[in-house]
Design a protein around this nucleic acid. Structure first.
Lengths: 192, 192
DNA sequence: TTCTGACCACTGCAAGCGCAGTGCTTTAGC
DNA sequence: GCTAAAGCACTGCGCTTGCAGTGGTCAGAA
């Protein structure tokens, strides 16, 4: 097993591209080699088997999709109101649109996770942790809304991003800004 | 090209099972034959090529996931309030959970549609039509909420169903009924 | 008898994997 | 600064797997 971290990352990024372009069906060690412009057989030296590969790809996509802490810090200087939440959501959408490949790869991995127990456990662990963190961050930062409201926000954003990625014809009918602003305003409103 | 409709449907249902079990990666004509318990080579006689197959599979999943008109009719006898919308949403979730295979197949098809233009157009047409119908039905039936509210409801349910399908650990943290009821109450509330 | 679909066997093709072998580069030890 | 050793990049090959497609036979219905 080779250790060169730069090369490993390059291979993983290539794998994400392949996954986005050709799907799980097209993801082979040779295809990764080609996408990364390295000699045939290189990927074989870096990944034990498909499970190992998918696990590493998953971790890499998490890295790539994570928000820049500096940007978060800067954004969070604003007052804790719905406008700020909407801004955070808009940044989320922008981030996802800017790295469409990682997002598509994540979807492929989600599906793959339904049939590979090991991957499912790992992905499940990561995403539930992320989900919990999101809620804790939101409530801890004093942003408006209750626990269930934040969860609903999360689900709605998931759905929006799913369509944005795979069937843009639907979200394209709306103005994203308006959609997000309305969603935040309503879903985080106090229960009556 | 063979015409026997019963056999064709059986093959398509088998294809949906294969798609759910093994993903796009595992979907081959031979795999369909095996899953449908018909002799090797049969599926070849029913599908011109992969595009043709995927298109037919897509149409079949739409059929399988469509609500029973009788149930809808019965449900719609109730007064037009948020409770009724919540009930409709709950029925949606139940319907999706009852046919997990079709749903997973649809997700696979969504991803496949991002790389096959023909499938993308077809799927896009179907789903945008469905989305428009949903909104028209909702508003036409005098259910509470405005256009954007219904769209948000749609996105949130998509997200919820996506997680329910691929990462149940997250939605399992909540009571579905409560989630749906709260979502409906808030997202369809009149703008202030 | 004729037509349609079911069934089956065979061929040919393509792709991927894993491995082994070679040569280069870097590091460590002295 | 030299030498030895280890790690890594690169290459090619053999093997296996698995699929698509074709053509031909058989059975049943019109």
């Amino acid at each position: 097993m080779r250790q060169n971290p730069a090369r490993r990352t390059a291979l993983l990024d290539a794998a994400i591209d392949v996954l986005a372009r050709d799907g799980s069906r097209g993801l082979t060690l040779r295809a990764i080699d080609a996408a990364a412009s390295v000699p045939t057989g290189t990927a074989t030296n870096y990944f034990r088997d498909r499970d190992d590969l998918l696990g590493q790809v998953m971790r890499r996509t998490r890295e790539r999709l994570a928000p820049d802490p500096a940007v978060v810090e800067r954004t969070m200087r604003a007052p804790r109101d719905a406008k700020l939440v909407a801004e955070l959501m808009r940044q989320l959408v922008d981030r996802m649109r800017a790295d469409r490949a990682s997002n598509l790869a994540m979807l492929e991995l989600r599906l793959e996770a339904t049939r590979r127990a090991a991957l499912g456990d790992e992905l499940g662990g990561f995403l539930t942790a992320e989900h919990t963190e999101l809620i804790d961050f939101h409530l801890g930062a004093g942003l408006p809304g209750d626990r269930i409201g934040v969860a609903l926000l999360y689900f709605a954003m998931s759905g929006l991003l799913l369509d944005d990625l795979t069937l843009p014809a639907i979200p394209d009918q709306y103005r994203t800004d308006e959609l997000v602003a309305t969603l935040v305003a309503r879903v985080l409103s106090a229960p009556r």
